[in-house]
Amino acid sequence: MSVAALPRGSLFAWAVPVAGVAALLLAFGWHISVGAKTIPLGTVMEALVAYDATNFDHVVIVDLRLPRALFAVLVGAALSVAGALMQGVTRNPLAEPGILGLLIGASFAVVVFVGVFDLAPPALIPLVAAIGALAAAVTVWGISTAAPGGATPLTLVLAGAAITAFLGALITAANLLDEETFEELRVWLTGSLAGRRLDVLPWALPWLAAGLVIAFGAARQVTALAMGEETAVGLGMNVGRLKALVLVSVIALTAASVAIAGPMGFVGLVVPHAVRLFVGQDYRLVVPWSALAGAAYLLVVDIAARMALAPVEISTGLVTALLGAPIFVWLIRARL
């Protein structure tokens, strides 16, 4: 059943978003309560409402688990919205920040920056990530439009794979040349919410907010563009301006999430496709629902990453890849 089909103002039109937010809150609470020591949900609520610094559980919740849950919410929402926008604008079901090379571009820029300047100021990390993501996006887009046949899903994915292989090799080489600096980056490079980037968070938030605001604002026009460029032009839209806006939004969202958690692949692929199954093709619904579902998805994935092989923790980015890659293969079979 599609949400869009529901009559406006009916009980259900309100009930569904409320249920979605409730599910997100539930996932949030669950995420905080599980871990090396399971803390009951009641204590979690208590710690958030009435913090007691002498209670060890409260300290663990507020200092360790709450930031991690927040990271998951922010990164999940950012990457999912970025993926939804990219799929709409490039009209390519396989588009996603990871597959098209934006994540590796941002990561590479951060690696170089941190490697060259030992005391990298956290304020600049989102900016550096944004520059890297933009350069990667421009390169991939340039390669695929110059290829015979234009920017088809195939050429975009191949160009993204090429960028990923190239920068991945350079990152490994940089890693070998300067092992000490990269010791701390190694976990971050697999996509981790383990929360060592707390200092970056306040600097990443403006990027995230800007990206989301643009995404919500442009959603209506993205719906038209997703139907085809002729349709959009016929509706009197300035397609070039819209594309530039969406690019800014995607870059900002990607940069913020890479700065917080490293490259987290396939989140932007899985979530928007799942959301579209329920709400249809209207991006006014796809974008907010992607944000909500992406946040909940990454919370649940992170729970799995922490619990699957406990006490060993798998990087969250690896779990998103393990879940997302089969969906990618399925999409190739179903849509191409």
């Binding site: 396989l94 899903p153 195939l154 994915v157 191949l158 794979a161 697999t190 692949g265 396939f266 092989l309 060993v312 923790e313 798998i314 990087s315 980015g317 690896l318 779990v319 890849a321 393990l322 997302g324 890659a325 089969p326 990618f328 293969v329 190739i332 079979r333 191409l336």
Partner: peptide, 25 residues
């Protein structure tokens, strides 16, 4: 032929992640 390559890229991503997870474990 082209779906072969794309599928391969997806499978390669999956296996790389599995290998990295194996290394953490």
């Amino acid at each position: 032929t082209m779906r072969f390559i794309l599928t391969g890229i997806g499978v390669a991503a999956f296996i790389s992640a599995a290998t990295s997870a194996m290394l953490t474990y």
